[in-house]
Amino acid sequence: MIIKIKYNAIICKGCRIDELSKIRTFIIKQAIQYGFTDDEAQFIALATEEACTNIIKYSYKFDQTKDIEIVTYKLNEFFVVEINDEGKPFDPNQIDKIDINKIFRERKRGGLGIPIIKKIMDEIEYLPAESNKKKNSLLLKKLIPSN
């Protein structure tokens, strides 16, 4: 896996689950620069990690020839973490609200990542790849603190 960091972007070539901590560290630093507290920044990093884990496991199926590119920026009142991937499109907004008791009864160990992302972030936008846009983009948005 090769990680390239350029100011507000991190490119993870051949992204592996055991090295997601590097993405976490990057996001925490970026979020703190936008005025989030340590705890808030760690939550935003957790949401980002959950999204990247899903891409690596379910979309790339651990294929290490594929890349994940993450860009952070301000858009209106939001801090945005934009995650770009080249896998099969999957819109997390299609997942209904979590029923934790159902997961409990069914003894499931998966399916908790997207609920965590939805609890942490204020808005989630998904832009699937199209003919003129090669990558899927997942935009995780968090309102920037006012003071």
Binding site: E49, R107, I116
Partner: peptide, 13 residues
């Protein structure tokens, strides 16, 4: 992360 939470969910019952 959710993977850690999932371990407890998988076995608790």
């Amino acid at each position: 992360s959710s993977a850690g939470l999932g371990v407890f969910m998988a076995f608790i019952e």
